[in-house]
Design a protein around this nucleic acid. Sequence first.
DNA 1: CGGGGGTTTGACGAACGTCAATCGGGGTGG
DNA 2: CCACCCCGATTGACGTTCGTCAAACCCCCG
Lengths: 270, 270
Amino acid sequence: MAIRHSELHAASSLTEPVVTRLKLNAPLSERDIGLVRGLGQTAETHWTGGEILSEGQVVRRPLYIVSGWACLRRDLPDGRRQIFGFVLPGDSVGVGVARRSIALTSTVALTTVKTIDATTVHEAAGLPEHRGLASALQAAAVLESALLLDHIVRLGRLTAVARVAHLLLELRHRLACVGLASAHRMPLPMTQETLAECVGLSSVHLNRSLQQLRRENLIELKSGSVNLLQPDVLAAISDFEPTVLPKSVISPMETAPMRRREDRSFMPPS
Amino acid sequence: MAIRHSELHAASSLTEPVVTRLKLNAPLSERDIGLVRGLGQTAETHWTGGEILSEGQVVRRPLYIVSGWACLRRDLPDGRRQIFGFVLPGDSVGVGVARRSIALTSTVALTTVKTIDATTVHEAAGLPEHRGLASALQAAAVLESALLLDHIVRLGRLTAVARVAHLLLELRHRLACVGLASAHRMPLPMTQETLAECVGLSSVHLNRSLQQLRRENLIELKSGSVNLLQPDVLAAISDFEPTVLPKSVISPMETAPMRRREDRSFMPPS
DNA sequence: CGGGGGTTTGACGAACGTCAATCGGGGTGG
DNA sequence: CCACCCCGATTGACGTTCGTCAAACCCCCG
């Protein structure tokens, strides 16, 4: 299921999304940052479709996603599913909603996902010399609940088209925070059915909603990535406003790192 | 808005819902319990419709609800509202989702609400001699997120009737935990419109869903309280299962404390 | 050249929202 | 004590949104 890396090279670059995210949350000292960078050695790989964490399972240790996408999911008795949100590079798994207890949802890899062990960081956050880390982790937890609240508003009060627009804007904003999306283009490495399970629609109706957005020249869909043609219009029709914290993290930079070839396979090469 | 009580009598009995809840979350020492009981002096009263905490406002101090109901709410630009959940006696306000930061939602009193200041408890939880409190608070935070997740499932995957059934069962379970509901009857001190804003339906359709439940002899509605006639059937049609923790807290006791006279007014006697 | 999974389309029915009128009970003023 | 009033609950009619079923399509890959 998870494969431990023996490679040590380039380990520090792996941790950059995490460093970026934590620095946005709170000012970090050099020691804080060094601590996080040291986690590159603990990288593990999870294949598409694999469960990084299973609902009901005891959470052994907190993780950080350093590359790839995952989702938080619950399976209902009749086979239907609800996706609570997506986990992106820089996000943590097994924290806040489930630290040191029982996982409330499954965390499933949507692409090949690389993770690092966050135990050290969480332990250090208790020490007086790492106050910066402590507030960064706290802020991360708050942002996590904020995402859940936004999702509730999406499901409870928005129409199908607005739900999709709202979700796309949220993902763009979060990706931009860690430098993985430009102002317009971003990866969207999942099935329409997965998207539907997130926004509470049937896959057919989700498809029609996407088409409506395309017809109105609001988005462009290529396999595995989206182009938000008129983000302001999308925001208007969905009442979107990015979650608090440092405003306007979206840089005008146009480098949008795309998924590598190996990530396009939706099945593990077992 | 909030009125500080000068009355000191019967202060300790006020805190009982909080003690009960915390004891369910983790084993508490006598010192832990004594600490909580001492909070009776800090009681404040909020009138129906008043905002105990406003979205965007800096959270000054954590509170416990000791009597009455409140809801977590967000108002949308077009006047519509989404209710994220209800806050019952024993629940905390301004914790977890917003501790020491900015409130992510408004907390609005649905009845007359009495609160006590939880600052002391939260500070004590950091001390080694109050480890029990620390785990109790942690468990409370987890349960809080669990409720949000359940709500997402309700909104994303259940039909109107099932949403209502699911919500009623959740409320009964939580009330029973603090001895405020019997196996069947429980208070429901809110407008159908409020209920609708919670489960993401129009008030008209919510009304029809309630009627369907009544027609099928699953519930009985009197002003301000519900009777769950066949909880097992309700659970079956809504895929409900109570949130983890000590199973079957629902006692066969039939004493269902109803709202007092003063609580039936929906407007403050200003 | 096939196959298979994902996407798209059409047709149809069920679920839900909206508008607007009516009802009903408790609270209030006379 | 009684008539009035107001808010919330209820009802009907109608239109829209969304789900379901099933077929066709498309593209990537073997």
